[in-house]
């Protein structure tokens, strides 16, 4: 679909840690908070579980943006997993840009289990930002 088409909505793949961000998404739902239905959540044990390959795989399979969400620094269920993830994604974010992916396609956010509101806000903001960027075509797999 082209950018101009009204019907196009971005697709976000969100890797949410089981203990905080996934619970945050859950809270957003149980609190009946409204946010765009653009996100597909993949639950992972920890943001530290997110291999940078996951990001590229998501882009390959049609994601317009990828969100990695974990516990706030200091709050990791496994004490330190998100600290490692932070370093990894500091680097991976810059590296994706170096390969020519537009800045703003990969987001990393800390969302706790009590931050249902933050989860909804992040998805709203990210959807709006991706709508401005348009569909991602880079790294996307074509028809076989």
């Amino acid at each position: 679909m082209s950018v101009g088409e009204q019907s196009w909505k971005p697709t976000i793949v969100a890797f949410c840690c089981n203990w905080c961000s996934y619970a945050g998404a859950d809270l957003a739902g149980t609190s009946r908070l409204q946010y765009p239905a653009t996100v597909r959540i993949i639950r992972v044990p920890c943001s530290g579980r997110v291999n940078p390959q996951f990001i590229v795989r998501a882009f390959q399979r049609g994601a317009d943006g990828v969100l990695v969400a974990g516990c706030h620094p200091g709050d990791c269920h496994y004490s330190t997993g998100n600290y490692y993830a932070r370093r990894r994604f500091l680097l991976a974010t810059r590296f994706l840009e170096y390969l020519g992916i537009e800045p703003g396609r990969l987001w990393v956010r800390w969302i706790s289990g009590s931050e249902g509101h933050k989860f909804a806000t992040v998805i709203k903001e990210m959807s709006a930002a991706l709508e401005r960027l348009g569909p991602n075509v880079k790294l996307r797999e074509g028809a076989l």
């Binding site: 590229v56 882009f59 590296f95 790294l139």
Partner: peptide, 21 residues
């Protein structure tokens, strides 16, 4: 198949991205 055997532009990019990181 993180990389798989297919030779496509996205797969080539996955290879070099993974190797470098």
């Amino acid at each position: 198949p993180w990389l798989g055997r297919e030779i496509t532009v996205p797969a080539q990019a996955m290879f070099h991205y993974t190797r470098a990181l």
